[in-house]
Amino acid sequence: MSAPTETDAFEVDDSSIRRMRFYGRIFLGACLLATMVGIVALIALVFDVVNEAWGWLTWEFLTHPPSYLAEHYDPANYGDLPTGPGGIYPALVGSIYLIAMTAVFTLILGVGAAIYLEEYAGDNLLTRFIEANISNLAGVPSIVYGLLGLALFVRAVGAGSSLLAGALTLTLLILPIVIVQTQEALRAVPDSMRRASYGTGATKWQTIRNVVLPEAIPGIMTGIILSLSRAIGETAPIIMVGAATSMFAPPNLTDPTGSFAAMPMQIFTWAKEPEGDFQHIAAAGIIVLLTVLLLMNAVAIYIRNKYDRRK
């Protein structure tokens, strides 16, 4: 290099900087590539499911009970079936009942426990021990909750393989997450509001009911709905509790100890069938399940955004 003499003082060997820049670009490329793996997987997954289900997802599929024969699900055969088309109806209704009951139990147990931990229990060693346990419970595999539900609700309590046992099992499964998220929502309510309420002579319960809960309810609802949308897709616990593999009438909400069908179980059963066409049927079932799940997520996001804007 023959650089002019006046720039000599600034003459540096920038090859190391260039090398670092080059590594940096390679690294960014690797990061982008890794991110694309997740995105491509999601797009491929949705595309594949829609592709498989195309032509099989009909109104009749939503409103008819399942069948043992793949031909019964084929829209081309609907016309000449003595038994009527096959579908997902009992499992769809079963899943909705299951989630509705789980929601009630979760409100009573999960929100109650969170209020107790946040508003009643003091900040002592015991409370911290309890909270550590709860976050530990959140990592327990769902199959373990299934075994618990089987041993406890199905056998010991004697609820049998019922809607009630299923809902209680799912409640235990999401309870730790709901408690943690409700606690966070309660913690976000400023203490000055509680003090102002006590100052007007309100009791503890009146303060919680009229001041703390209204303020925390969007956060609590978001947490519960997101947890429920996780529960509706859980398959392993439902298998252990003994959801019916083929049920021809929807479960009866007035008889919670009767047997029940649920969408994940139905999809699992269809997917296990050796006959190729059942893959299309399972895919159609998945679209129904995903639609319900995404609707629940959308409601949760709507609630969160609506109340976030207010603040």
Binding site: G110, V111, G112, Y116, I130, L172
Partner: peptide
């Protein structure tokens, strides 16, 4: 005061259940 007492029963009960759940799982298994 009655409502106060009833509500505290519910909340304490739920709180205890959350604690018991931990023991319940281990003991049952």
């Amino acid at each position: 005061l009655l409502i106060e007492r009833l509500s505290s029963y519910w909340l304490i009960g739920a709180g205890l259940f959350a604690v018991a759940l931990f023991a319940l799982i281990v003991l049952t298994l």
